[in-house]
Design a protein around this nucleic acid. Structure first.
Lengths: 221, 221
DNA sequence: TGATAATTTAACCGGTTGGTAAACATTACA
DNA sequence: TGTAATGTTTACCAACCGGTTAAATTATCA
């Protein structure tokens, strides 16, 4: 009896396709802003424009909705890191990784907050994903970065903490959006903040990872 | 009737002092790991080792506990930024700000997560603090940084995004601790991770903000 | 069109949660 | 030590929450 009634029909219907889509979209909205425990099925139902028992016809439990949502979103969330190319130019690769992550923070802030909420509260529902697919992928890319550092193409640095720093700085603009807006003030908090952020982060990481340390040409008075 | 019974006694007693301390400590633990809505008074009561109605003798509502906690913690949370000294050496100041923030992530992860939870979910209870004291402080320090950049002491960059980057990279080790541990693996996830992080972040920011861009001495083969 | 499968809703249930009332216990102090 | 002020507990409540049941409604297609 582990399946919802909708999954026990003879064939998969058009309505099932559509409604599950609507529900997961609503669930993303609600889970992202309230976290798992802070979200109620009623809230999701209201956003989805359907009744609570109707949601439960498509997903047996709140947990099942969350699980389905995570599954659907996790893969695409890791795409930017996957594209990280060992053969490419290190500086170009890192720069475009930052740009892509920042674009995702801008275009998919709810997805970012969904994971942030989950991880922040101990990742009880995605621990496996963290220690499995995520770790593997990061391990793989860390090797690439380390090779670049060894070859003198970028500064010698810990590749894991480099990746953490890129995650942190980019996702910050999605996860802590309210704070960013509050600090920048109404005038500077327009969409231009993402371009400013991109410019700054590019400077920081490209300069920061350049071999040989700072130029130190002295103050340009 | 806005005050809890304990605040309506004739004098403030020793027991009030002690119990409120115990409660706020427990509230920090619970709110930091579950967020406001995900936390229950019963949970806090259990951690505090007292009964729910007893908590409500000292704090009238769950919200009041949260408010008192935020008030108590916010000030010390901003201390590192306050110490940021306009007269000091720019590189030294930034470096020690990073170090202090990282120490706080290590030593006070619950405080970090308390704010992270709050901001992540739209900061409904601390919006005023963000737009008031926090913004003022950041504005003030941003001026300092901008002056340094203008004087050619550090690279020309947006001071606000620099501050965001420092917040993001350092607090990451508190807020996303589970993920950091998962990715680093059991062997590398010991306390040494903070020293590794410090080393990396120092490289990143000191190099990244150095005037004149990278040395680019070419690959050191 | 009619029968069958699929979908939706109303009514409900037990457990949890934030909070209250009032009796009871303890402490401080004259 | 007695007593008034302070602190704690028991019992409780209404609202909320996740989930179920069964009946009603709608879509599908022979």
């Amino acid at each position: 009896m582990a399946l919802p009634r909708a999954a026990r029909t003879q064939r998969r219907t058009r309505i099932q396709e559509e409604k599950e889509e609507v529900i997961l979209e609503a669930a993303l909205e609600v889970f992202a802003t309230n976290g798992f425990r802070g979200s109620t099925i009623d809230q999701i139902a209201e956003v989805a424009g359907m009744s609570k028992p109707n949601l439960l016809y498509y997903f047996r439990t709140k947990e099942a909705m969350h699980r389905a949502l995570i599954e659907r979103v996790l893969d695409s969330w890791l795409d930017p890191l996957r594209e990280f190319d060992a053969e490419g130019n290190p500086v170009t690769e890192i720069r475009s990784y930052i740009r892509r992550k920042l674009e995702m923070a801008r275009d998919f802030p709810r997805e970012s907050r969904l994971f942030a909420n989950e991880v922040l509260q101990g990742a009880p529902r995605i621990e496996d994903a963290l220690m499995g697919p995520l770790k593997s992928l990061v391990d793989e890319k860390a090797k690439v970065i380390r090779a670049w550092a060894k070859a003198g193409k970028i500064a010698k640095c810990d590749p894991y903490h480099l990746i953490f720093a890129i995650w942190a700085t980019t996702q910050h603009y999605a996860d802590f959006d309210v704070q960013v807006r509050a600090v920048l003030g109404t005038d500077r908090a327009g969409e231009g903040r993402f371009e400013d952020a991109a410019r700054f982060l590019e400077l920081l990481f490209v300069n920061g990872l350049a071999v040989g340390g700072p130029a130190n040409g002295g103050p340009a008075t």
